[in-house]
Amino acid sequence: MNSPRIYALHDQAITIELGNEINEAINLEVLYLKQDFEAMPFEGFIECVPAYSSLTIYFNESRTQEEVRKEIISRLEKKNLSTNKSTLIETTLGSTINIKPIIIPVCYDVEYGTDLIWLSNHLGLSIDEIISLHTESFFRVYMMGFIPGFAYMGTLPEKLHAPRKQTPAQQIPIGSVAIAGKQTGIYPAAVPGGWQIIGRTPHLMFDKKRNPCSLLKAGDAVQFKSISKKEFESAS
């Protein structure tokens, strides 16, 4: 791998870019760096925001771009990611990242999974096959983004890869579970969106009164569990 690209995203933020793809190994490396900065924060550190293949580090006004850049580069050199990263990642992440999956109940009834019929035709799979494929896999939360509490999860089995909608839906109901390309996600609020909707969870993905407010975070493992309409209604 090439050495990471480091750039300013804001006067008070620096991004370390390790690639430009949805790749589990790169994402693990991102999360590994996140943990490292969180465990040993430098002076003025605010937070690390992971994306698929990059980590953005925010710092407060007490530190300059130049100082923080130096700090980041020297830390990356110490980690010497490109040579022995796999051992480092295994030893650090193996023990610290929560690998027990978080189970998320989903009602895959066509009333909630409004794109199931379209997907069934498009993918050449029965609705039951779609549900099986979605519930049998373990997913990783690669990153959070889009809106508060939205987790980008992957990687979807290839048989389920479907394009985004041509025109985004005006309002997707809260809790809608959706897929797009290699990804799956859950809409934490009623917003416009372009992913294909396959079901709905009664779980609140984002609750500002909860700490942490988001049910999921980058690095979590997730498995979906099919529930009946009745179970969904009594849980909502």
Partner: peptide
């Protein structure tokens, strides 16, 4: 609101 962007909060 600094420090919560990792959960998608602007």
């Amino acid at each position: 609101r600094w420090g919560h962007q990792q959960f998608g909060i602007p």
